[in-house]
Simulated scan of single mutants.
Amino acid sequence: MGAWTRVEQDPNKARLDSLSKRLGEIKKSQEAETARQRSERGSSKGVATGMRIVTELLAAILGSLLIGWFLDRMLGTSPWFLLVLLFLGMGAAFRNVWKIASVREDSGQDKDEG
């Protein structure tokens, strides 16, 4: 009975070693894939932030221009409302961009400290 047990253990040990080796290779490939996805996620976050900044600038400035032009047409005060709302819109746009940039910097500092 002792010989039978030894014969059974040797093929199982070889199979376990082979399985362990394959699992190690799979784990390495998954770690490489995870690292690649993290780097892609970081670059896509930068693109998303850039698009948000452009959208904030365009929406605030064009929206204020449109409202100013409409008010000037309705009230006959051309170009005063257009100019006033243009400057207010630019101020709001730059304030929003500043807030976006400061949030991004703060989140980067928290990650370094933690």
Rank of each mutant, 00 (worst) to 15 (best):
L88Q: 08
K99W: 13
W69I: 05
G42C: 05
T55F: 06
R95T: 06
R6G: 01
M74R: 15
L57G: 11
V84H: 13
L23Q: 14
L82K: 09
A14N: 04
I67F: 14
T55H: 12
K99T: 10
A92C: 12
A14T: 00
V7N: 10
G108V: 02
W98D: 15
N96G: 06
D10V: 03
M1I: 07
R22K: 04
L66W: 12
K28R: 06
Q109G: 00
A14W: 00
G114M: 14
I26K: 10
R6P: 00
I53N: 09
L23I: 07
K99Y: 14
L65M: 15
D106I: 03
E56T: 01
S20H: 04
L86A: 15
A59Q: 09
L19M: 07
E31V: 01
M51R: 02
K21L: 12
V84T: 14
S107Q: 08
L88C: 13
R73F: 13
R6H: 04
G108C: 06
E113A: 08
R104I: 09
E40I: 13
L62N: 14
L16Y: 02
K13A: 07
L66E: 11
Q30D: 02
L16P: 02
E105A: 13
Q109D: 05
R52D: 07
S20A: 04
F94M: 13
I53S: 14
S39P: 01
L75E: 12
D10A: 02
N96A: 08
V97K: 03
A32W: 06
G89D: 10
L65G: 06
V7W: 07
L85S: 01
A32C: 00
T5D: 02
L23C: 11
I26F: 02
S43T: 03
G91W: 12
W98T: 11
P79A: 12
E113R: 05
I53F: 07
S43Q: 11
A48Y: 03
F81K: 00
S78E: 09
M1V: 10
V97H: 05
E56H: 00
T77C: 06
N96M: 08
G24P: 01
I53Q: 11
E25P: 00
S107G: 03
E31M: 03
D10S: 04
G108Q: 09
L83T: 11
G46R: 03
V97G: 07
K21D: 12
Q9N: 02
L66V: 11
D106W: 06
M51V: 06
L23P: 01
R95H: 09
G63R: 10
L85Y: 02
A32Y: 08
W4Q: 00
P11K: 13
P79V: 11
R22I: 09
R6E: 04
S78A: 15
M51K: 04
N12P: 00
L75G: 12
D17S: 12
G42F: 07
Q37F: 09
G108R: 08
W98Q: 13
L57S: 10
T55A: 15
S44M: 08
G46W: 04
A32L: 06
G24F: 01
I26Y: 02
E31K: 01
L62Y: 10
V97Q: 09
N12Q: 03
L19T: 01
K111A: 09
G46I: 03
R41P: 00
R73W: 15
M74I: 05
V84K: 11
L19Y: 11
